[in-house]
Design a protein around this nucleic acid. Structure first.
Length: 454
RNA sequence: GCGUCGGUGCCCGAGUGGCCAAAGGGAGCGGCCUGCAAAGCCGUUGCGAAAGCUUCGUGGGUUCAAAUCCCACCCGGCGCUCCA
């Protein structure tokens, strides 16, 4: 039975999709004003894994991830660089794409841009105006009237009054609002900023109303899962929900939030300056090591991503690759071990418990190696196929190794074999040192030596 | 301050009433395999020869039984209006 922890209820609840066999997911994407960092990677990997896993479980999955390509930060960055907002957005969206590709994150089924949905957003705000859920502050824009929504604060698990008490704890309250909880839906134009026409004068979109417009347009009302980083739960998602519910629409049926990446115990963020850019990390590590590391921690638990942690994950990954290398002709298309696959599904179904799934993968790999050691090739083939398949369910592709040939290396290996045959082990070891110096690892197996790049 | 999530063995990290001295990964140690390696497998890493004893932030409590439930406290993450 599939279950997820729903942020709205705070409970782990059975997941029943809107339409049997089909799952619709809206995952909050980046605001493209800077390069992606490791925290973005965790989020992206979480929803990539969720989608792939659900697909592996037989669901047809539709994933929407937006690109927010107009907002304050983009405007600020464009001004700093002396360029235009579309330029900034284009540059960093391309960068995001590039890193996601390297990470092995599949492109979403739909990737709407905020700037493509301005007309829909205006129409949405208009609806809210018509029902009294919103009001105009002359010269500032249109605000959502939070007091009109009975359960504003539901995602934050706070009552409106509690929220009012806490309001201003970190950010100054805009005194022009009727209520501290009200938030802007449409921002009136300021000089030099990009604007779009509206019934309330030229301006631009406010609090992530693009997510509401796009999710409802593409996925429809009552779509299944709305996901994102848990720093978005309030106010970002709270406000989205308010906008949708305020307009009388059924919004997301389940809210899923992934936890943050920490650095020395603190959240990785731009403002703290403690971030590792994703590009730098991927230049130095196998992207699969990052995926495995993320899979080994439950998505709702904050985690550290640093060199030592990645090194550990890399070592584990090497074990799996080594197994794949032992049976290079077996892949995920082979007959999988049904009992293992069932256990895997039972485990992971419980709130996307990928750490349990990974544990089972390693357990299966161990059994496969043991079967190979005792020459039980039929069992081994089934287990290796299972390892490939389960890794595949998490988007982890194992590398069965070098299919490449290299005349120089082949010659050295042949020479070493000849020396070994002649029991001239001093010469054999010298040749192996020479090969090692080229960055190659040689492994002797019952069927002869194999090599790979270290 | 309020809300929320968490504090587990050498490290990372699962585990939410008994099957737990506690998955899996990493690291260490011993063994097997190998000419030697690598890879792999087996065992082992709280105390004890064993029966057993003591462990899962701290202190209480509930229960026949608690890492798991309740209360208090300490510590940490995140959020409290434009951060994934």
């Amino acid at each position: 039975m599939l279950r997820f922890t729903d942020t709205l209820t705070g409970d782990k609840t059975e997941f029943v999709p809107r339409n049997a066999g089909r799952v619709s997911i809206y995952a909050c994407g980046p605001t493209v004003y800077d390069v992606p960092h490791v925290g973005h990677a965790r989020s992206a990997l979480t929803y990539d894994v969720l989608r792939r896993y659900l697909r592996w479980r037989g669901f047809e999955v539709s994933l929407v991830q937006n690109i927010t390509d107009i907002d304050d930060k983009i405007i600020k960055r464009a001004a700093e660089r002396g360029t235009t907002e579309p330029d900034i957005a284009r540059i960093y969206e391309a960068d995001y794409d590039h890193e996601m590709t390297r990470l092995g994150v599949e492109p979403p089924d739909h990737r709407p841009h905020a700037t493509e949905y301005v007309a829909e957003m205006v129409a949405f705000v208009d609806e809210l105006m018509a029902t009294g859920m919103a009001y105009v502050v002359e010269g500032n824009g249109v605000y959502f009237r939070a007091s009109k929504l009975a359960d504003y604060g539901a995602l934050a698990h706070r009552s409106a009054d509690e929220l009012r008490e806490g309001a201003g704890a970190r950010v100054e309250i805009d005194e022009r609002k009727e209520d501290p909880l009200d938030f802007v839906l449409w921002k009136a134009a300021k000089p030099g900023e990009p604007t779009w026409p509206s019934p309330w004068g030229p301006g631009r979109p406010g609090w992530h109303i693009e997510c509401v417009a796009m999710s409802l347009d593409i996925l429809g009302e009552s779509f299944d899962i709305h996901g994102g980083g848990d720093d978005l739960a309030f106010p970002h998602h709270e406000n989205e929900r308010a906008e949708a519910v305020g307009a009388g629409k059924s919004f997301a049926r389940y809210w899923v939030h992934n936890a943050m990446v920490n650095v020395d115990g603190e959240k990785m963020s731009k403002s703290l300056g403690n971030f590792t850019t994703l590009g730098t990390l991927l230049d130095n590590y196998d992207p699969r090591a990052l995926r495995l590391l993320v899979l080994q921690t439950h998505y709702r638990k904050s985690m550290e991503i640093n060199g030592p942690a990645l090194d550990q994950a890399l070592r584990g990954l090497e074990r799996l690759d080594a197994l794949a290398r032992r049976m290079p002709d077996v892949d995920a298309t082979g007959a999988v071990d049904a009992a293992t696959a069932q256990t895997f599904a039972d485990d992971v179904d419980d709130d996307l418990a990928t750490p349990s799934g990974v544990a089972l993968i390693f357990e299966t790999a161990r059994r496969a190696n043991a079967a190979l050691d005792s020459s039980n090739r039929a069992l081994a083939a089934s287990l290796v196929a299972t390892v490939h398949a389960l890794c595949g369910a998490f988007g982890l592709a194992l590398e069965a190794g070098a299919t490449e040939t290299d005349a120089e290396i082949d010659a050295l290996i042949a020479a070493r074999q000849a020396a070994r045959g002649a029991r001239d082990f001093a010469e054999a070891d010298r040749l192996r040192d020479e090969i090692t110096a080229l960055g190659i690892v040689v492994e002797d197996t019952p069927s002869g030596p194999i090599w790979r790049r270290a």
